[in-house]
Design a binder for these strands. Structure first.
Lengths: 362, 362
DNA sequence: GTTGCGATGGAGAGCGCTCTCCGCAGGTGC
DNA sequence: GCACCTGCGGAGAGCGCTCTCCATCGCAAC
């Protein structure tokens, strides 16, 4: 059995075939489990594989199958090619100082996306390639990466509206799926949350607690999620006889939530309920409220959004609207693999329903 | 110029060569910038590239260059092949429920590692492939992935001591670099922090504030970082005439920090200073202290470790010992690329010095 | 005028794999 | 008993690229 294994480099199919006394094709068939191969020969081949310590060369396989068996997970940032015009071609000069990536990962949201993606991919023997696309050049790199065949498709998580990347991908005919509906319609599948319903749950909960002077800290209003959460909140309030509710715009960061809470408190010192469009801002709001001598939830009830790790880290733990990020990310991945299998299929969308999670803050 | 571009599929070198009226080899030379090619011809080739929209096929290139131009970023988990014996071969049956990945990303630490890695890799046209290795099978997959040539090397971040992955990698002769010194010596380069020095800074700061009854919430004591931070703290306290300091062991999570603080407070209600071995636990400690009517820092001063995002999210913001995770991750990546370039070079280690960051909590 | 040499472009051999053909058995139908 | 299928293994043609040769050319040196 101790045959003449090729001394140099890793063993190839050829080496295994020689060791097993069969042809390359047969070894390949056994490894890929295609067609019927005599069980006895299968066993011999498997022996030879383990004796030689064979590992199939991925590049060679990719070359002929034309699949990389990899997907890109792209965190896509600001698309501010400012100014009007259908297709601003000016490339923003952005520093390579990593401030974008640093900011991005401070948000527990992305960790959850990664978790969902990885959990779906792993059982299928695939792994995500992490990429960032916050500049025009970086976007081109993502497109090039896919066109080179380094990955078979892309999962896009945009941090800003008007992100040009989905459009670029669609135009290039590359497989992609988005997390969250794009600001402008693009023929690409996406998953999203029923943000309005979530905001409704939050508003109804505060009203049910007999809060009467309710304000909201919205997300950035140029982002669909920010808009929808605000709209859902306002509609519900209006439907319950509160046509006017104070609003302070935040940026989905704890800091912006603190600032927004300060503003609200200055103008409406008597408020007794706050809906923050995400947990980070809700946490900031709690801090500010406490600093101003307000007890949460006794004096002011606070509801967040997302049910991120921040909700549990906060004291009191946040009552919040759960966004099932992990499941959504997994579904997004499923949609992508689907599309890779049938490139001609039309784009679809899957909308998830949020749930209210009641904890200490409201 | 509008030549007969191949209709089917992506353009190949051949197509570009035909469009430019030169040979494949020349196009390849222009693209890879090797040897002298007449500037005029270079220009013609470049034109042809952009006309045809050519993107070099990565698999084909990898096949001949024998490089993937990719690295794996592996989050490696528990290696509890329990029981004695030099090489436990029993594979843990672990659920594929994603609880590991979910847990991992709850810690802001990993986001910072990713940031550092990506920032180093990006300017070099590379991207990390995210992998998890918390089970025996998953570890084998990582090894297989590298042996297949899907990635040229691995960056390993272990969450537990006694992680078998570094050993496996070393045995297979694969390029790898670790974040943090392994529990057992392994011939692999790593970056690490001078944990003892960091703990010393924390202790000295508390002592300088005239804290007299100082306790510590340690990290898990089976992890080198947990041990070293505790040792550094104790040594410093002893050197300043405090041979005995109360200790409660935590697990680097906020929850464990809360529990540890409860225990300390029950046994030592009069303590006036706490050193927690990371920020998450320090944050938990702050919560518990406040719930017990202690003001931070007036009644009890709290010092954390890491200077993670939790330090700023906390109220008051945490005085902490800064671990430059992003720089360390970047350095780890640099070491890996180094090693990939010169596989025969001996393993090295780079130790970073921590810094005290004074904020509100102490 | 011949030789030598550096500079430059082309030809062609693979890299390791998959997959379509084909051939050769051995069984089946009439 | 002959044609016919079916099952199974082998041969060999690439996939698209890089890179080592080799051919060619211009020019300086003898």
């Amino acid at each position: 059995m101790t045959d003449d294994l090729r001394s140099a480099g890793a063993p190839t199919l050829e080496d295994v075939a020689r060791a097993a006394g069969v042809s390359r094709a047969t070894v390949s068939r056994v490894i890929n489990g295609v067609r019927n191969v005599d069980p006895a020969i299968q066993e011999v081949v498997r022996q030879a594989v383990s004796v030689t310590g064979y590992a199939p060369n991925r590049a060679a396989r990719s070359l002929v199958t034309r699949r990389a068996d990899a997907v890109a997970l792209v965190v896509s940032g600001a698309g501010v090619e400012s100014g009007p015009g259908p297709e601003g071609s000016g490339s923003r000069a952005a520093g390579d100082d990593g401030s974008f990536t640093a900011q991005v990962f401070a948000d527990p949201f992305f960790g959850r996306v990664v978790t969902g993606v990885v959990n779906y991919l792993r059982p299928r023997g695939m792994h995500p390639v992490l990429m960032f696309a916050e500049t025009s050049r970086a976007r081109d790199e993502v497109v090039a990466y896919l066109r080179q065949g380094s990955a078979d498709g892309a999962l896009i998580v945009s941090t800003h509206a008007e992100d040009p990347l989905p459009g670029l991908l669609a135009k290039a005919g590359l497989a992609a799926v988005l997390y969250a509906r794009p600001a402008r319609p693009v023929p690409i599948s996406y998953v999203d949350l029923a943000h309005q319903d979530g905001a409704r749950l939050a508003a109804e909960h505060l009203l049910a607690r007999d809060c009467r002077r309710i304000a909201t800290i919205s997300g950035p209003l140029d982002v669909p999620a920010g808009q929808a959460r605000l709209a859902g909140f306002r509609d519900t309030m209006a439907r319950h006889g509160h046509p006017y509710t104070p609003i302070a715009e935040g940026q989905f960061t704890q800091e912006s939530g603190e600032a927004a809470m300060e503003r609200l408190l200055a103008e409406h010192p008597d408020l007794d309920g706050v809906f923050a469009a995400n947990d980070l801002m809700a946490m900031g709001a709690c801090h500010v409220l406490r600093e101003h001598g307000r007890r949460v939830p006794e004096d002011v009830a606070v509801v967040g959004f997302d049910d991120s790790s921040a909700a549990l880290a906060c004291r009191p733990p946040l009552t919040t609207v759960r966004q099932p990020v992990e499941e959504m990310a997994a579904e997004m991945t499923r949609l992508l693999l689907d599309r890779m299998a049938r490139p001609a299929a039309p784009a679809t969308s899957v909308i998830f329903e949020p749930e209210l999670v009641v904890r200490g803050s409201a």
